[in-house]
Deep mutational scan, measured.
Amino acid sequence: IGSLMYASIFGNVSAIIQRLYSGTARYHTQMLRVREFIRFHQIPNPLRQRLEEYFQHAWSYTNGIDMNAVLKGFPECLQADICLHLNRSLLQHCKPFRGATKGCLRALAMKFKTTHAPPGDTLVHAGDLLTALYFISRGSIEILRGDVVVAILGKNDIFGEPLNLYARPGKSNGDVRALTYCDLHKIHRDDLLEVLDMYPEFSDHFWSSLEITFNLRDTNMIPGSPGSTELEGGFSRQRKRKLSFRRRTDKDTEQPGEVSALGPGRAGAGPSSRGRPGGPWGESPSSGPSSPESSEDEGPGRSSSPLRLVPFSSPRPPGEPPGGEPLMEDCEKSSDTCNPLSGAFSGVSNIFSFWGDSRGRQYQELPRCPAPTPSLLNIPLSSPGRRPRGDVESRLDALQRQLNRLETRLSADMATVLQLLQRQMTLVPPAYSAVTTPGPGPTSTSPLLPVSPLPTLTLDSLSQVSQFMACEELPPGAPELPQEGPTRRLSLPGQLGALTSQPLHRHGSDPG
């Protein structure tokens, strides 16, 4: 009997000691992992102490058991019943959930998450997105703005933001810190809205009876308010094209079509300037034949640059190039080494500058006005007194259609001029006259002087055409309008007829 009692007592005591040691061994194993994590990542002392304290409290609170892992091991129907039991206190005593059906309560219970916070733990920081609604079931918390405590909340209090009033989550206007050990039930806004969409009859009752104890939403960050730039940057990543407008005076608003859609830094370009900076079609017209890549860069430059609305530039004389043409100036200075066709295309550029300027006046029909002061630039669209967005969009579309028509007509005119030049060069190729044979009589004449090349004649003739079109064909006081194609086609051969009437002889060394 004594040996039996000794064996039973010894066996029970050893089993008890073994169970104690097993729990202690698990605790030390998990604690060792936490300390190894702290050492590996070199976490500083204040945060390291918070980690160790939280682990110790969580171990004593749950005995080292992962409740979520245990809950996920059950089937979904059983999980709903378990969640309904775990959140029964909240669902029974909170006013917004009263009167809900059994199915609605089960769906809500599945969406709730339980959070346990030790003292000093910050649940929400200032500036964080308010993605959830919090219900306090135990403990107390404090809300701070800077170093000032603005509120202390306790059991059955609710904090967050009214989700039904805002389409997008706002930002917190303060820090939420736990004063004691707290148990909180939180539900994400997407989950709550999903359940309320499934039960629309409960939705009206819920929003009407929901009383948020403390609204954390920062009202200064609401979209459309003066301080909402940061919020707009976070939620409006896919922005449309940006529009900046110059201020319109009362006198300017009476004149229709007073602005032109141009790229940034293009205030001095012609009315047909689009795409790359520098001139019509993204580059100076005089350098068009020598740089074919300008047409390839036109599309990307047009689509990537934001639109700006600026006044037209001052008018340019008909014979003056659009500006920024070092290529043609070098050719004029060193005409001995340049291609003979460069002079002809220089005359073509003069005609283009004249036609572009006159067509700009035809479509816009307003006098040039000086540029406004820099303080009046970049007025935002949302400022008071601005035109409605639809009106601005319609004006932009009208300007775009005008620019497209202008570009089409300029292309047709350019093709006409090039065809005339090619026809003239085919009839009378460039050549130098040879020395004529002296006559049989004693009164022999001296050799004839060489005839100037055709490109120079073409430049003079085209300059005469531009001056003739600019000065004589337009009646005084009438708006400057571009001439039609047949009129220009008839004027060019008439001007060139006198020049080509002389018999030109080919030089023996000319390969053409």
Rank of each mutant, 00 (worst) to 15 (best):
P289Q: 12
S228N: 12
A431Y: 12
L406D: 03
A167S: 10
G477L: 12
T436W: 09
A398P: 06
V417T: 01
N215S: 06
G268N: 10
L420A: 10
L396Q: 05
G324H: 09
C182W: 01
H507N: 09
I152P: 01
R368F: 12
L129E: 10
K186L: 09
A398D: 12
G288V: 09
S342G: 10
G439E: 05
P486Y: 15
R237W: 07
V176H: 01
R361K: 03
A344N: 08
L403V: 07
P503H: 08
A178L: 02
L459R: 06
G263V: 11
R316N: 10
E142S: 13
Q238V: 10
E232D: 13
D510L: 12
P438A: 10
L418S: 03
A371D: 09
Q402C: 15
S411F: 13
E230R: 12
I152W: 13
P226Y: 08
Q400Y: 01
V176I: 03
T456I: 07
P226E: 11
R423L: 06
G268C: 12
Q400L: 11
L163F: 11
D413F: 03
P300N: 06
S444T: 12
I379P: 01
G174A: 12
G146H: 06
D128H: 01
T219N: 07
G288I: 15
S375D: 04
G494T: 09
R302T: 06
G323R: 03
L474H: 11
Q422W: 04
Y199P: 01
R189C: 08
S284V: 14
L459I: 10
F468P: 06
S290N: 12
A151R: 04
D175E: 09
L427S: 07
N220A: 12
D175M: 12
A178P: 03
G494H: 11
L421P: 04
T416K: 04
P340H: 11
A261D: 13
S294K: 04
P300A: 08
P318N: 10
L193D: 03
V148K: 11
E194H: 12
S466Y: 05
R302M: 12
Y432V: 12
R359Q: 05
L130M: 03
V451G: 07
E298N: 05
E296C: 11
E232W: 06
T456F: 08
S273L: 12
A132T: 06
S305E: 06
L427E: 08
M221G: 08
L216P: 01
H205A: 13
L193K: 08
R506H: 09
H188K: 09
S244T: 10
Y363C: 10
F206G: 03
D147W: 01
R308A: 06
M328W: 03
D413A: 03
G270Q: 15
P321T: 11
S446W: 15
T456R: 10
Q362E: 11
L165S: 09
L454E: 11
L309D: 14
L492Q: 09
S444R: 10
L341N: 07
P438V: 13
G494I: 09
S304N: 03
S260R: 10
F159D: 01
R387V: 06
R308G: 11
T437Q: 09
A151Q: 03
T436S: 11
S342Q: 09
E142M: 05
S433I: 12
H185M: 05
R506Y: 08
A178Y: 01
G257I: 13
P289E: 11
R409T: 04
S314I: 09
T180I: 02
R177H: 03
N350T: 14
G324P: 08
D297Q: 04
V195I: 06
L499I: 10
E393V: 13
R316P: 15
P200S: 04
E194A: 13
P440D: 08
K240P: 13
R405V: 05
S203M: 11
G324A: 11
F354R: 12
P447L: 09
Q467K: 11
C338S: 09
R241F: 07
I136H: 01
E473K: 05
T416F: 04
L243V: 10
L381T: 09
T180M: 03
G265R: 12
Y134W: 14
R389I: 01
K251H: 09
A344F: 04
L457A: 09
S501R: 09
L130V: 09
P380I: 03
L420Q: 08
S304E: 10
A371E: 13
V465H: 07
S209P: 01
E329T: 12
Q467I: 03
F206C: 02
A478R: 09
T436G: 11
L165N: 08
D190Q: 07
Q495F: 15
P475H: 06
D336E: 07
L196C: 08
V195W: 05
P285M: 15
C471L: 05
S225H: 10
R246A: 12
G233A: 11
S383I: 15
A151W: 01
G288K: 12
P503A: 12
K171D: 01
V176R: 02
D357Y: 05
A267K: 09
P372A: 10
G323H: 04
I222A: 11
C369Y: 10
F214H: 05
S444W: 14
V428R: 07
I143S: 03
R368W: 07
S466T: 08
S137T: 13
F245Q: 10
D191L: 01
G146L: 04
N220M: 09
P340Q: 11
E254N: 08
V417K: 03
I379S: 14
M221K: 09
T456G: 10
